Amino acid sequence: MLVKEWARLEGLHPQTVWKWCRQGTMPVPVEQTPTGMWLIHDPKYETASQPSPAGSRTVCYARVSSGGRKGDLQRQADRLKAFAVGMGVEHPEIVTETGSGVNGNRRKLNRLLADPTVGTIIVEHRDRLARMNMGLVESALKAQGRRIIVVDDTELDDDLVRDMTEVLTSFCARLYGRRGAEHRAEKALEAMRDARV
């Protein structure tokens, strides 16, 4: 179980739990994965937190926004596989995909979500699965006895900017036509960056 999840269940602040993990003063067994992530093995919750039926599959889902990031995609898949093996999954499946996190036109992800034999989906970051409405996806899967495990809950700014550019380009194309849409979207992002400074 992840630190944030255990801290929430125990009514503690996650920073306190991370500190205990680093100091070796946790009241329950912990383990640090090769990527540096802490996993908590609390018998009180581990048996209850395995809602996936016997024989269900665990799938690691890796995604990047563009084809120019294929190297990142492979490294992401390798980290997910190491995390799954660290969790005790013997043969985790790896599904990789290239596409925007904003739209729902990702065939491989749609197949995973529709497949009832997939009990657990592991993603590196929340935005790798979906940029928007992630809570809805989690709720729908939870109602079916399935779950999503997010390895690292921090956001990736460069992918967020790229997705924001895609959304702005789409809106500009509707307003001003395709020809100048990308240029206008870039100008809008530049204005936002200047306003932050």
Rank of each mutant, 00 (worst) to 15 (best):
R107S: 14
P34M: 08
R22K: 15
R69S: 13
G55N: 06
L112T: 11
A7E: 04
T35W: 01
A62D: 10
E186N: 13
N133Y: 10
Y61V: 13
H91M: 08
G67E: 14
R106M: 12
T35Q: 14
T96N: 02
L189E: 01
R63G: 09
G177M: 10
V64S: 11
A130F: 04
R146A: 06
D115T: 05
C172H: 00
D115I: 02
T165A: 12
R69E: 15
P34G: 04
G88I: 10
E97K: 08
K81E: 15
K81L: 09
L73I: 08
R146W: 09
N105F: 11
P92K: 06
E93F: 03
L73N: 10
H125N: 14
V59I: 12
Q23R: 14
R196V: 15
R193L: 14
E5N: 05
T96I: 11
V150T: 14
P43C: 03
E93G: 05
L2Q: 09
E46G: 02
L39W: 04
T16F: 08
P51S: 11
F83D: 06
R63K: 07
E124N: 08
L189I: 12
E10V: 03
A82S: 12
V151R: 03
S100Y: 05
L73Q: 12
R69H: 15
L141T: 07
T33Q: 04
S100I: 01
G145Q: 09
M87T: 01
D42H: 05
A185H: 04
L12W: 14
P34E: 10
S139N: 13
R8W: 07
V3S: 04
G88L: 13
M37T: 15
L129P: 07
R126N: 09
V3M: 04
P43F: 05
Y61A: 12
N105H: 14
M1E: 02
D127Y: 05
A62N: 08
S139Q: 15
C21S: 10
